[in-house]
Design a protein around this nucleic acid. Structure first.
Lengths: 146, 146
DNA sequence: GTAAGTACCAACAAAAAGGTAAGTATGGAA
DNA sequence: TTCCATACTTACCTTTTTGTTGGTACTTAC
């Protein structure tokens, strides 16, 4: 028996619809998990943070965000646009000219994401230290078990 | 030409080592991206939030977090433990008894993550509305282009 | 004697994410 | 005339992530 949670995981006191309306992240079929996925995704985070200083074109974002492929950038931008965090303005010219910027709610969530990212960057040395300590604990444990 | 960024994406004014030391999320090989991945991952978020109200056992977390498999829960817990966000205490008894709790830095980052998650849950109706509006715009655009 | 309980791990399979290369449109420059 | 620029899309393939199944260890309860 490996997978018994699907029913027990859901709060017994509330009907499912109520949980979904209020958005219960702990229930598996919750739509807010998808939003979280877009926002917290590898590229979503960087896009949101990049747009905090104003409007940018597709190619600008591409250059600024190290390692994104065109495909992923386009895909991530679309997801964030769908959720209403990003506004896309396309000028009908050749070659194409498209501008991306944060909406009001985009600014709000980008601020939260940036806070999180900043915390990590600031505390990175501490985290690295913890990782190395963990590493060495692993080794000594492995050795003692031989 | 599809992939030209790998050099241009990196801040030209700083040596690579300096960027990595301070943790530049926009440079592709940055270790802070991994931490962000652990923290923002599907299960990482829920684990951190779950542990905010105190110590929990493996099976408790499993029940509380809808949809996690044992494997994923174990894996995510290990990643967060490595980063120093979670403390794991195993009592040498049979059947096994293991307790998980947040470290000090774990509490800090869990607070930020919870803020983000709360914002999404609170604003979920707004987001859903935006999604539907986007959806209908799509349809009318498709129709007019025929 | 055997089933149940806990916190895992390893092996394999499926699914999802991501990368790469090529194509689209069209005006202007070489 | 061929190439370039931009913002994509599509098809195809690789890599990563996730799920599934079956085990382990030992004790207690039935």
């Amino acid at each position: 028996m490996t997978n018994t949670e699907s029913s027990t995981s859901i709060d017994q006191d509330l009907p499912l619809t109520e949980q979904l309306r209020t958005g219960n992240l702990f229930a598996s079929p919750c739509p807010s998990r998808d939003v979280l996925k877009h926002v917290c995704s590898r590229w979503g985070v960087l896009i949101l943070i990049s747009l905090r200083d104003g409007t940018h074109r597709f190619s600008e974002l591409r250059k600024r965000i190290g390692g994104v492929s065109e495909k992923m950038l386009a895909q991530s931008l679309q997801a964030l646009e769908q959720d209403g965090f990003i506004e896309r303005i396309a000028y009908p010219v050749v070659p194409p000219h498209v501008e991306y910027s944060l909406t009001t709610s985009g600014e709000e969530i980008a601020r939260l994401v940036a806070t999180l990212a900043d915390w990590i960057e600031v505390n990175m040395s501490q985290i690295t230290a913890a990782q190395q300590q963990h590493q060495s604990r692993q080794i000594t444990t492995d050795e003692s078990s031989r």
